[in-house]
């Protein structure tokens, strides 16, 4: 039986990809950054933001790959769902045979 691809929310996708790149940019972490870096100098702040820009570049690349994979899974699912429907009767017969084999009562 074809499994339905699991599609998480936008926030979950973002966090899942960003987790591997820059944990400070997770949706839960961003609001805490102001307090965390309250005493940093202007130079440090500029460097930090540059680091974030670099992280977003990496994120964009990883996101493209992720979405390509999602699309691939959806295409495979579409194809398999139709094929599976077309072969329903065949599968039913197979499952009946399996049940007979496994029957123990």
């Amino acid at each position: 039986m074809t499994q339905i691809p699991t599609l998480p929310s936008g926030q979950a996708i973002y966090d899942m990809i960003m987790q591997e790149i820059e944990p400070e940019l997770l949706t839960q972490s961003i609001p805490t950054l102001t307090a965390k870096y309250a005493s940093e100098t202007l130079q440090q702040r500029t460097e930090r933001f540059a680091r974030y820009e670099k992280a977003y570049k990496e994120y964009d690349k990883a996101y493209e790959v992720y979405m390509q994979n999602v699309q691939l899974q959806v295409r495979v699912y579409k194809k398999e769902a139709l094929q599976s429907a077309e072969h329903t009767s065949l599968q039913k017969e197979e499952s009946l045979l399996k049940k007979l084999e496994q029957s123990f009562v």
């Binding site: 339905i4 691809p5 599609l7 998480p8 929310s9 936008g10 926030q11 996708i13 973002y14 940019l25 949706t27 961003i30 977003y56 994120y59 996101y63 979405m67 999602v70 699309q71 959806v74 699912y77 579409k78 769902a81 139709l82 599976s84 429907a85």
Partner: peptide, 28 residues
């Protein structure tokens, strides 16, 4: 920047969900 990325991911996930639903309807 983060909000835009989240919104973009949400939209793409919705598109994929619709495609899955269409596939299910055809299979049905």
């Amino acid at each position: 920047v983060a909000a835009r990325r989240v919104a973009e991911a949400e939209e793409a996930a919705n598109r994929a969900r619709r495609q899955v639903e269409q596939a299910e309807e055809s299979a049905d």
